[in-house]
């Protein structure tokens, strides 16, 4: 494992998902995870936490993932933090068909297993 823990912010309205994802990532002691279940507070939390990577759910009530991403990208301090979208509304085949990018941003299709997710995270945090 590398020295410093990588800080990952997870924005997803599904509480049990964020809790389990945090548990999974943190037990491999490479990550420090912060979770956000209310998308309207995502920007503030990101400014405070200063993540190195953001996992962002697409379909959320109140504020869709796309809008959250726009907020994050508009912030000079967060602009360079990679965002990976997580969504159930897209198939793996479609993700790979467009090289894992949709609208220039990377996507991971739900459901995803830890093995694959870790591979993606490692690729972006390397």
């Amino acid at each position: 494992m590398k020295g410093a823990k990588k800080r990952v912010l997870i924005v997803d309205d599904e509480v049990s998902f964020t809790r389990l994802l945090k548990l999974n990532l943190e037990q491999s002691d490479g990550y420090e995870v912060q979770t956000v279940n209310a998308p309207l507070t995502a920007l503030a939390e990101a400014r405070r936490f200063q993540p190195e990577l953001i996992l962002l759910d697409v379909m959320m009530p109140d504020l869709p993932g796309g809008d959250v991403a726009a907020q994050l990208l508009a912030d000079p301090a967060l602009r360079h933090v990679p965002i990976i979208f997580l969504t159930a509304a897209i198939k793996k085949a479609e993700v790979s068909a467009c090289g894992g990018l949709v609208g220039g941003l990377p996507f991971v299709a739900k459901p995803v297993e830890m093995k694959e997710l870790r591979r993606v995270l490692d690729a972006y945090l390397a």
């Binding site: 599904e14 998902f17 389990l20 994802l21 548990l23 999974n24 037990q27 297993e113 830890m114």
Partner: peptide, 10 residues
């Protein structure tokens, strides 16, 4: 399903 898989992984 995602939650089940995450739980299983854990």
């Amino acid at each position: 399903l995602q939650i089940i898989l995450m739980g299983v992984d854990y």
